[in-house]
Design a protein around this nucleic acid. Structure first.
Lengths: 131, 131
DNA sequence: CAGGATCCTATCCGATACTG
DNA sequence: CAGTATCGGATAGGATCCTG
């Protein structure tokens, strides 16, 4: 997709139907960019992690949301799940090729935001619901 | 929340302090990856658009959410807003340098998802034998 | 340790009505 | 055309308890 324009004057072309329909890509994007999904994916870029490691890595996430987010990502084939039937049980999560593929632009997005905020001196600025 | 007092350049070695603190980058990421934010940003990559053009471009979005999303993006300096006091009034939106900067990884993310889904044969139409 | 089940609240978001 | 204000249903998400 070279550009994202959907404003075809006569509407003869449907190249960009992602915006127009409930394309499955939209669901996938929603999962990836869900509140916690992006942090899980970025966290797993450096190394595979166990459940509690993820929980401690992503501060503020509840066990419920971590579990739920992981299940969605596994279902989307972005994350794999390995269970070792030891005592106590160990469950490890890691990125699939697809997950690693998507992790790159997510990391890039995050880096660019961080970089810009540093340049701004991280001024609070007007926010939603504040000010 | 949003105390904004963690910006102390202590170690600066910590690559992902954002995970551990109440970093403003997290708020920004939330806005950018909000349900509609990503589509607004991608839509505006090709050209500046007026309110109703955006609404028609991003199918399924309500005026309320478009307005709300745009306000957040403008407040975050990702999108600019130009009002022309004509009759009827015209309001045009476009990407700032920062917005354009973030649009790239978002587009890339979207492209990679679309590409993968195409490989998976998820698209409607000629169906491959998937078992 | 890993995570399911439940309850409950906050918020998201669409629909509607109204303004300039 | 380009919004704002309000209401209400749907959903996300946190806290807690419980299991293997």
């Amino acid at each position: 997709m070279a550009d994202g324009s959907q404003l075809t004057p006569t509407g003869t072309d449907a190249r960009y139907d992602v915006f127009h329909t409930d394309c499955p890509a939209r669901d996938m994007v929603d999962h990836v960019t869900s509140r916690w999904g992006i942090w899980v994916l970025i966290s797993l870029r450096s190394n595979d992690l166990r459940f509690f490691e993820l929980r401690e890595s992503i501060q503020g996430i509840s066990e419920k949301m971590l579990s739920q987010t992981l299940r969605a990502l596994v279902a989307d084939r972005l994350v794999w799940r390995k269970v070792e039937p030891t005592t106590p049980p160990q469950v490890t999560y890691g990125l699939t090729d697809f997950g690693r593929n998507l992790g790159e632009p997510l990391q890039e997005l995050f880096d660019r935001i961080t970089r810009q905020l540093s340049l701004d001196g991280v001024r609070p600025g007007p926010r939603r619901g504040t000010g």
